[in-house]
């Protein structure tokens, strides 16, 4: 399914980077304000979804630059990895570890929950785009 509309194409092309930036913003502020990995992931996928509707799935895949299933895998790996750090220290699985950085809030605290959230973000993007691209590519 695709729509041949110049307006749509232009909009999509313009929106893509902006939406991605916006999703990054949502992601970062998520720990303190409404937002977080899920929502950010959904926004990012929406950007590519729009692009794929405006152009087609193949071009959207090209712009994405990575196989969506791989993205799922990487997201899951990050989430899982974030749980290992504490195990090396003899603590339970998935315990949050934090370090302080000399940066302004919200960047002053970096910890494994953020890595976990990052995994969530990537996995959501990967899955959503897998859905959408696969459905669009159905003959």
């Amino acid at each position: 399914m695709k729509m041949d509309s110049l307006i749509l194409k232009t909009t999509a092309r313009l929106l893509l980077p902006n939406l991605l930036l916006f999703s990054l913003f949502i992601f970062i502020r998520g720990h303190n304000e409404p937002g977080g990995g899920f929502i950010a992931g959904l926004v990012a996928s929406a950007a590519y979804a729009l692009y794929s509707i405006a152009f087609d799935a193949e071009q959207a895949r090209h712009v994405l630059g990575i196989e969506t299933r791989l993205l799922i895998g990487i997201g899951l790996v990050l989430a899982l990895l974030s749980g290992f750090f504490s195990m090396f220290g003899g603590q339970a699985f998935l315990v949050g570890l934090w370090i302080d950085l000399p940066l302004p809030s919200p960047f002053n605290k970096v910890g494994t929950p953020l890595l976990f959230d990052m995994g969530v973000f990537l996995a959501v993007v990967g899955v959503t785009l897998t859905f959408i691209f696969a459905l669009e590519e159905v003959k």
Partner: peptide, 20 residues
């Protein structure tokens, strides 16, 4: 609920593909 929403999103997507 957030977890449940996301899970049912995945499930419905799968169900759609299955129906197709």
């Amino acid at each position: 609920i957030l977890t449940a929403i996301v899970i049912s999103f995945g499930v419905i997507a799968f169900a759609l593909a299955l129906s197709y």
